[in-house]
Design a protein around this nucleic acid. Structure first.
Length: 281
DNA sequence: CGCGAATCCTGTCTGC
DNA sequence: TGCAGACAGGATTCGC
C-alpha cells in the first residue's frame, strides 16, 4: 500500500522519465478511476497534446503538471501503480489508463487490481474538488513539520494516537505500516496504539516524532533501491520487509524483548504492537 | 467531537 | 481437491 515514501519514490522516478514528454492521447478503460472531471471525454481532451511539466508529491498524492494550466493528481490507494509499458502490452490485466507519448512506443500505464485509486485533472493549484488534498494536514517532509507543531496537534486530541497519526487532515502521508512502526522504539519502552494523544509525555512525543523521520527516510532509501523492475507504488518487497519491526509480524518475537507481537483493530485498521514494550497505561 | 459501519474491488486465505 | 465465503484495506459518508 503506497504511503508517503512510496509515492515520493514514484515522484522522483517518473520525474526523470516522463518530464518534458508530450502526451499524444490518454486511453481510459475504467472510467470510475477518473474522479474529476465527471466527463471522461473532457478529461481526455484537456490532456491531449499537452506537455508534462514538474512532478511533485503532497502526502500520498502525486501531482503532475499537464501543460500550462492543468494538474493531474493521482492517489494510488491500495493497489494502484504506474508502470512504463509498450503499446503492445496494453491488453494486460488491471490496466485502467494508458498515456501515449508522441513518437514513443513506451507509454505510461495506470494499473490497479482493486480499482480503488483516484485520478483528478484540475486547474493548477485548485484542489477544492480533491477533498483529501484540499484538507491535507502538514506533510512530514515539509519544513512546517516541526516538533512544536506535532506536539500541539497530538496533545489536543482525546483520540487513540494511532487514529490521530492516520488522520490525513492532521498529518498527511502516514499510513498503516508507518504508524505501527513509529510507536515502537528500539531498546526503549514504546507507545501503545490506543494511548490517548492528550496523555502522551514530551519524551514519548519526541521519540514518535523522531521515528516518523527515521521510518520515512529509510523507506525512501529502500524504495529508491528497489524500483529497478519498475513497480512504482509498490514497496513491500525484499529489503523493505526486513526493515519492518512490527507491521505484519503478528505472533513473531518483538526485537526488544522477544514477546509475541499482538494484532488488534484500532481505528478500524489492523494494528501490531508489543504487549510488553507498548503498555496501555 | 469522535466512533463504528458501510462502501468500493478482487486476490488470497480459510474451512469444510 | 474444489468450492464458497470471509477478509483486507484508504478515505469518505452516514448515523449515533
Amino acid at each position: 500500500m503506497p504511503e508517503l515514501p512510496e509515492v515520493e519514490v514514484v515522484a522522483r522516478t517518473i520525474a526523470s522519465e516522463i518530464s518534458g514528454k508530450v502526451i499524444e492521447e490518454v486511453e481510459v478503460f475504467w472510467p470510475k478511476i477518473v474522479n474529476y472531471p465527471d466527463d471522461v471525454e473532457e478529461f481526455k481532451l484537456n490532456i491531449k497534446g499537452q506537455k508534462i511539466g514538474q512532478i511533485r508529491r503532497t502526502g500520498k498524492y502525486l501531482r503532475i503538471e499537464i501543460g500550462d494550466h492543468f494538474e493531474l493528481v493521482v492517489h494510488f490507494r491500495m493497489t494502484g501503480k504506474f508502470q512504463r509499458i509498450v503499446k503492445q502490452d496494453k491488453n494486460q490485466k488491471h490496466l485502467h489508463l494508458f498515456f501515449h507519448f508522441v513518437q514513443e512506443e513506451e507509454g505510461l500505464a495506470y494499473i490497479d487490481v482493486r480499482k480503488f485509486g483516484d485520478i483528478f485533472l484540475v486547474p493548477k493549484g485548485e484542489y477544492i474538488r480533491i477533498k483529501g488534498l484540499f484538507h491535507a494536514g502538514v506533510d512530514p517532509l515539509s519544513k512546517d513539520f516541526t516538533f512544536p507543531i506535532f506536539k500541539e496537534l497530538i496533545r489536543k486530541k482525546n483520540r487513540h494516537i494511532k487514529a490521530i497519526l492516520l488522520d490525513q487532515s492532521m498529518i498527511t502521508g502516514l499510513g498503516n505500516y508507518i504508524c505501527d512502526e513509529v510507536l515502537w522504539f528500539e531498546g526503549k519502552k514504546g507507545v501503545h496504539p490506543q494511548r490517548l494523544g492528550s496523555s502522551l509525555t514530551d519524551t514519548e512525543l519526541k521519540r514518535i516524532f523522531q521515528r516518523i523521520h527515521e521510518v520515512i527516510q529509510e523507506s525512501i532509501r529502500l524504495g529508491g533501491n528497489s524500483f529497478r523492475d519498475f513497480s512504482y507504488g509498490e514497496g513491500m518487497k525484499g529489503d523493505f520487509k526486513k526493515m519492518l519491526k512490527m507491521y505484519g509480524r503478528k505472533g513473531e518475537p518483538c526485537f526488544n524483548c522477544g514477546t509475541e507481537i499482538e494484532r488488534i483493530i484500532v481505528a478500524g485498521r489492523s494494528t501490531h504492537y508489543c504487549p510488553k514494550c507498548q503498555k496501555n497505561k
